[in-house]
């Protein structure tokens, strides 16, 4: 029987230090930093290092994860001060001569260690009517027709996995929890620019509100943070344009 070994480049093992911002709600008054040494391989992700700590050193370390390859959006966290997915951040791409700092994403209530309360984030998503609203019925048993070009217009924003990396990297969101945040605007964009949808005006009105798109100060943090490579700031700009000039 063959068990494949990891492919090139040749795997090396080394010991790294992770400084993790811990918060155990049943014990701690406030969050504290704790440092762990852990042996990892060059092909490992930060998520693997966290697992090794949880599984071999400290079972109380708590974080969310599921898919382990950047597709489910569970494990957004601040790694060395930047919002990233732990499962998509390879150790070899970080400076391991220094400790790696890992903490929960900012701006959502901290629940335990790397876990935050996601409910306010999903509530903002629900606000923008994130579903297709079409006035006409398609021909029975048939798809609505959409050209390749029209499909392309909103392709980028369909990639969103609702990980919250963008929203929780936004300085406006940190100071004003009422702001919808970039992820909700991305969700709205996906429908506003879908040629099959008829409710752009409703969504644009929602986003024209005082907690809407005009809060955005174009710092590009969100675009830098997005693990799906979505041009988040561009999407927000598209929405601003559409409010001023109408869709397309």
């Amino acid at each position: 029987m063959v068990t494949p070994t990891p492919a090139m480049p040749a795997v090396q093992a080394f010991t790294i230090t992770l400084n993790i911002r811990r918060f155990q709600p049943e014990v701690d008054q406030e969050a504290r930093w704790q440092s762990f040494d852990v042996e990892v391989y060059s092909t490992d992700r930060v998520l693997d290092a966290l697992h090794k700590i949880k599984w071999e050193q400290d079972g109380t370390l708590s974080f969310r994860r599921s898919c382990a390859h950047g597709i489910c959006g569970s494990d957004a966290m601040r790694i060395n001060g930047r919002n990233r997915l732990a499962c998509k951040t390879l150790i070899k791409d970080l400076d391991i001569t220094q400790p790696i700092y890992v903490e929960a994403i900012k701006g959502l209530p901290l629940e335990k260690d790397l876990i935050v309360d996601m409910e306010p984030f999903f509530a903002a998503f629900r606000e923008v009517k994130p579903f297709l609203i079409a006035n006409s019925k398609p021909e029975k048993g048939k798809e609505r027709i959409q050209s390749i070009a029209n499909r392309e217009i909103f392709d980028d924003t369909t990639k969103c996995i609702l990980c919250a990396a963008c929203t929780t990297s936004c300085p406006v969101f940190w100071t004003d929890g009422q702001y919808f945040g970039p992820a909700a605007i991305v969700a709205a964009h996906r429908f506003i620019f879908d040629s099959r949808d008829d409710a752009a005006k409703v969504r644009l009105d929602i986003l024209n509100d005082k907690e809407g798109v005009w809060r955005c100060r174009t710092t590009f943090n969100c675009t830098d943070a997005c693990p799906r490579g979505i041009q988040v700031t561009q999407a927000i700009a598209d929405v601003k344009q559409a409010i001023l000039r109408g869709r397309r």
């Binding site: 579903f131 398609p138 048993g141 048939k142 798809e143 879908d194």
Partner: peptide, 19 residues
């Protein structure tokens, strides 16, 4: 498949605009 398209799923399209 048609249900999903009608619900909004953005399938890739043919040059005629079909799925």
């Amino acid at each position: 498949v048609i249900d999903l398209e009608n619900m909004g799923l953005p399938f890739n399209r043919t040059p005629e605009g079909k799925i």
